[in-house]
Design a binder for these strands. Structure first.
Lengths: 197, 197
DNA sequence: TTCGTCATATGACGACCGTTATAACCCTAG
DNA sequence: CTAGGGTTATAACGGTCGTCATATGACGAA
């Protein structure tokens, strides 16, 4: 609750962004929402809203990468489950008013903004974490990449769909399919390895 | 180019929305963009921006449903290809500045707005069109629904990802996977029917 | 022609935006 | 205690937003 103001502002910006994209995260709302004075904003973020948006996206990216990386130590399926569980919790905790902050910025901002390239980095990071874990467990590189991309994109789409439906249905339905596909990719590789030996 | 002003405004609103969500579609920009006077906006849309947003989402929904429905007459795979091709074209024609207008509104707007429930309707419509075609070709209902949901969500996520990447890569990669999954679902059902007879 | 209706044009209103300047405050160093 | 830099508070700037009132034009009906 009482971290340093700068971190509080970043976390607040992530939360506001996840509810309506960057336009919904006004400097005044952000100051009120994070319990910091409006005047301080430009003390911590001299670059103004652009810098704040950029750092907020990276903040959300780092946070999810940390969660995802830790749970991937227990294998790709555990990582997938964590990936899904995190977003499901965010949806439910916010009564389906919040979604993925990275997607919100990706959709909302003009493509030239630095914050947008940070969203691309975030998506790529998540894909690489997942596909890397799949490859470590024997999945061929192209299959791993395709499956990781399918996971990230369908989860992002599902988050938005859940938000407008006011229900975690979409996320739960694709969860089953994605788990099957992942287990399938892993089983196929163990089969291959068995045949090779 | 010279349809009635009301339709021009709706099409213009869809285009602006697809580039940065509803906040990016200001009434002034829309008037300029669609070649209609600002004062006329409230003549055609007395409900103001809310009504315009609602109708614009339905407009985009109807348009895609028409395209999708027509191509689905040639089977689920043809429909899937059309679904992907439409978005790919929009991305490329706009130099990756435009995405899915429905997703933009879904992410941008507070959940209480009527326009948001129109986005939910759109997503549901597309899922139903796809899953309906799959069922018509013998796929079991639950499999059809899960696959259709996976298609719509992953395509939506991919559109956003392509936009920030400035490349159709994501869409092309998931296209292959989705086609395989669809053909698999169809093959499995014909196999089942063969065994039954 | 005169009127009335539909469409276009213009300008203004209050509200909020991002941003900045400036004044008050706290707290540690000397 | 005093001095001074880092932080907080307040007010204001120009600009854009959605919205509306009003004025001007087009044009068929009486």
């Amino acid at each position: 609750m009482s971290e340093d103001p700068r971190t509080r502002m970043l976390a607040g910006a992530v939360d506001l962004m996840s509810r309506g994209g960057l336009p919904a995260a006004s400097m005044r709302d952000l100051a009120r929402h994070s319990g910091t004075p409006l005047g301080s904003t430009y003390h911590y973020f001299p670059g103004g809203k652009r810098q704040l948006a950029l750092e907020a996206v990276r903040f959300a990216d780092d946070q999810l990468r940390s969660w995802l990386g830790r749970s991937l130590e227990q294998g790709p399926v555990a990582g997938l489950r964590e990936f899904l569980a995190v977003w499901r919790q965010i949806l439910i905790d916010s009564d389906f008013e919040a979604g993925c902050p990275v997607l919100s910025v990706a959709v909302t901002e003009p493509r030239a903004e630095e914050a947008v390239s940070a969203t691309r980095d975030a998506f790529v990071h998540w894909c690489e974490l997942l596909s890397g874990s799949l490859r470590e467990h024997g999945t061929p590189a192209d299959t791993a990449e395709a499956l990781a991309l399918l996971i990230v994109t369908s989860v992002e789409g599902s988050i938005a769909m859940c938000r407008v439906e006011g229900s975690p249905r979409a996320l739960d339905v694709i969860a089953r399919t994605l788990e099957e596909l992942t287990e399938n990719a892993l089983a196929q590789c163990t089969l291959t390895r068995t045949l090779d030996s």
